[in-house]
């Protein structure tokens, strides 16, 4: 898919996130907005998937390890045709569409996440399964930056590097803000690239809102042999809505009423 088309899909998904979060008075919209381009690139361009067969054994797997951004996963899956967009009306208001998704939430959701540091270990297991069965499907895991504080994440990074899990790609949504402060102030991850490299990973850094860069990095990741790959995606929390961008409070607030209308106006075209 061309970048212009992907941009249009991303705009639509951002609108859905605002509408869903505003309607349900739900939090975490800033965290969902920072990951939009990453999910769009994966689901609309890179991953081998079939929305009509969410259980297809040979599909690529995507694990939203930063489960608090569930809204972006639901909106992307619906936009991609895994289920009706009408279902998004029930986000946080019924059905199984909880903020933090479970594999019972909707077709296409692979795992339950929400407590940080769980998605990557599960992704490691999936990558191991594909290797054991000599299958070509790949596993993609999206981590938040704050999530990298978790020890379990580093257990997996050590394991995947040592075992050369080259069918595993991690993307870090590095928006530099965690729940109660800036990552640089709370528990600084830097030098992040060097940490992954020291753990025997192939690392690239991209602008996480630039489709060309994301696709290029994902394409290179696919071709990498003998090493898992980490894409550090530099992003902006709340991207696309002026009053949310780079603001910690949008981990908690929800775009209701006039705020919602303003956001949708900004996301009109």
């Amino acid at each position: 898919m061309q970048s212009a088309k992907l941009k249009e899909v991303a705009r639509q998904i951002r609108r859905d996130i605002i509408i869903m979060s505003g309607r349900a008075n739900a939090s975490h919209s800033g965290s969902a907005l920072s990951a939009v381009e990453i999910l769009v690139a994966l689901y609309f361009d890179v991953m081998r998937i079939d929305p009509r067969r969410p259980d297809w054994a040979l599909r690529d797997r995507f694990l939203l390890s930063k489960g608090h951004a569930g809204a972006v996963l639901y909106a992307t899956l619906a936009e991609r045709g895994f289920f009706s967009k009408k279902k998004l009306d029930q986000f946080c208001l019924g059905a199984n569409l909880t903020t933090h998704p479970t594999r019972f939430s909707a077709p296409g959701v692979e795992v339950a996440t929400g407590s940080l540091g769980h998605g990557l270990p599960m992704g490691v297991g999936m990558a191991l399964a594909a290797r054991m069965d000599r299958k070509a499907w790949r596993t993609y895991v999206l981590l938040s930056d704050g999530e990298c504080d978790e020890g379990s994440v580093w257990e997996s990074i050590l394991f995947a590097g040592f075992h050369k899990l080259d069918n595993l790609t991690v993307i870090i949504d590095y928006n530099k803000i965690q729940s109660f402060g800036r990552t640089a102030d709370v528990l600084d991850l830097e030098p992040l690239k060097q940490k992954f490299e020291a753990f025997r990973w192939n690392v690239s850094e991209v602008d996480g809102h630039d489709f060309e860069e994301i696709r290029d990095a994902l394409g290179k990741a696919k071709k990498t042999q003998g090493k898992p790959q980490c894409i550090i995606a530099h992003t902006v929390k709340g991207k696309g809505v002026s009053y949310m961008e780079d603001k910690l409070e949008w981990h908690y607030r929800s775009p209701t009423g006039e705020l919602g209308e303003q956001a949708l106006k900004e996301l009109r075209d």
């Binding site: 054994a57 795992v111 069965d133």
Partner: peptide, 17 residues
């Protein structure tokens, strides 16, 4: 590395093991 082990066990199981 038990946290990774238990998560990986779940990932393997969800892939048919």
């Amino acid at each position: 590395a038990e946290a990774n082990m238990m998560g990986a066990a779940a990932g393997l199981a969800l892939s048919g093991k």
